[in-house]
Design a protein around this nucleic acid. Structure first.
Lengths: 213, 213, 213, 213
DNA sequence: TATGAATGAGACTTCATTCAT
DNA sequence: CATGAATGAAGTCTCATTCAT
């Protein structure tokens, strides 16, 4: 079977002993590694198990199927990301919040660029997307709040603007990852320009205070 | 065998009789259809052959392996795109050329959004990417020429700017395709803003002549 | 996966070349053999393929899954049975028709007793039963016609009587098969007595009306 | 390993503390439940343990392997049955004893029809059959004693007659169970007719000698 | 003894590719 | 050249059973 039967993609059992928790973490990390090294196509449960140093059976004890592995991995990443991104809400202005968001995004995406790229792709597969909807929604919530600030021009369609924002960030940063760039500052600047342009933010450092309407 | 052995991904023989050309086209279109409907995972040589109304054997007569199918498909799309994009070079200014490029990109991507998205992904797989390098280079050439125009601020790294441009366009338009958007004008505008911002192009139509330094 | 996803259990493709038809027959016979020797639990697609001297792939070319194999096998048996059983309809009386039916049943069941027993069981599994419903209905039709004859006492519930008849025949003959009996005549007599009793048929050959104490 | 290595199928230890006995009973009942709901294929030691609210380890503490579970279950059922069936021996005549036996059988089989059917099947698997031989023998003993009574026509082969009797009863009652019948009296009558016919018992209560048309 | 984590053989199924006709 | 039958490696997943705690 190519793809798993429609099943809960949620973890199959909650590990109760600490040994098990460790196992789950190990498996997840092994999956991440495999994805990084071999890409989506190279991901296979036997390999993951082997890399994790456990048997396939063990893997399936915690993940009902292959997709559940990806879902769990994505959630793991999103969780970290989300936590960091929330910091943006404490920024004084929309623009600084945006900057914060960019910084965080870039950092996140460059931490493990290959993994990030692969997950970006996997997350678009319907099966996975469905499962991640909630996590993603929370994340978008943050962005919407940023876009609602006074110093950000109002957007015609909030939903779309949010999507576009995320897409642009990813596009540029994924590309950088692929190229092996590591100049975080330059990267942030580029993303910043694109987003500012998109949102209609002019003059990040207004030389002359009265230029604003 | 799951994945093809490294082999030439070029069409196995250049069909010279028109019947053969027709066959190739049919197969390619069948592949496109399958990709659109079932995504990357659903692509399968037997299925493509069936949908094309030929036998697998025939398919392999023209394509040495599955990847060659994707490569050919990508080239087909890139070729169309490239032809249209070249029109940009005749535009008087860099900005109008950019606009042209955007229009063309959006049109191209929205013609068959699902296919475009899938191909975008496939094209990133190393095996495929290698094969497409040349076609892509030609395309990038066009963009670089646009960016070199006077009315476009000079970019630190041409190569990167080009990549980013393409990435941004794709990101936004793919998203639109996924959402099922069809407002081409609005979409072009959004892309335009992002690119302008990225490139540092200011104020395309300055409402008030004196607000600017 | 233990049991196959709900899928058509019908043959996957109709073999078009005679080579393929031969293959299908070979596979089916191999399956029969395996069932006879190893029972339901021992049936496994790899083994069947191996015994048939083909690859698993070939098996799956014609049978979408394991159950389809059983269904096909059952249909094969039922078809033969049905053809023979229909002869009963030409019998002059209900009782002779019944006798015919018994003869045929016994012969059928004793031809390959082990196979018959295993199939009897498999046919009760819902997945299989559903698929066989039609074939079975035709068969029951025959029995109902027999039971409707004048010389057979009317039954309260035709449907139930039919089921019971079939069940009794099977029960006795399967047991005989298990024991390795081969005395067809004796077996038929036993079945005949049970059925006559069940149906309320008295005195098959009343020699002398007062001969009974 | 799919199937258990040949091992003693007897309960691993005879539980002597009542807590242990309780555990065994719980496990057994869980197994019965699973069999009823999911059939033979659905039986699985992990599931049984879970349903029983104990760990697999515990299950294996009392049952050396999966088959032992089935054997124990069968024995449990047979024991009850046997006890009730023995009542038949106190009946004055063979025919009334037979009637008793039928009543008991029907009741037994209809108590948990699904379970009864599944067990009937399982009991035929060689591994299980071997283990149950003794229990079954005792049961058959009872039947043979009934058949030996004066008012039952002598049977050619006692052994076979016994088997056939049991088989007929089961066949009819299992069918009834499958259909969801609950008319115990009607069912008993049907079984009675079949058995009488089989055994050659005539005219149970000849009401009026000339009642036949 | 109980627990439940871990094991791994083995079953099912798919699909890229080859090859006889 | 076309056909479509055949191949079989490889991947997914299950479950009986063992074993460390």
């Amino acid at each position: 079977m190519k793809t798993s039967r429609r099943q809960s993609l949620k973890p199959r059992k909650v590990p109760q002993q600490s040994r098990a928790q460790q196992t789950v973490a190990t498996i997840l990390e092994a999956a991440a590694l495999v994805l990084e090294v071999k890409g989506s196509d190279g991901l296979n449960t036997n390999l993951v198990a082997q890399r994790a140093g456990v048997s396939v059976g063990t893997l399936y004890q915690y993940f009902p199927n292959k997709d559940a592995l990806i879902v769990a991995l994505s959630k793991r990443e999103v969780a970290v990301f989300f936590a960091e991104a929330q910091g943006a809400l404490h920024e004084p202005t929309g623009q600084s919040a945006l900057k914060h968001l960019i910084t965080v995004s870039v950092r996140q995406q460059l931490r493990r660029p290959a993994l990030a790229r692969v997950l970006d792709f996997e997350e678009n597969r319907p099966t996975i997307a469905r499962e991640l909807a909630k996590s993603k929604a929370a994340f978008r919530e943050v962005i919407e709040q940023i876009l609602a600030r006074d110093d950000i021009p109002p957007q015609t369609d909030m939903q779309i603007a949010t999507d576009d924002l995320v897409a642009i960030i990813r596009a540029i940063v994924d590309g950088a990852g692929e190229r092996g760039e590591s100049d975080r500052a330059g990267l942030e600047a580029r993303v910043g320009r694109a987003l500012s342009g998109y949102l209609g933010i002019v003059d990040r450092q207004p030389e002359k205070p009265r230029s604003r309407k």
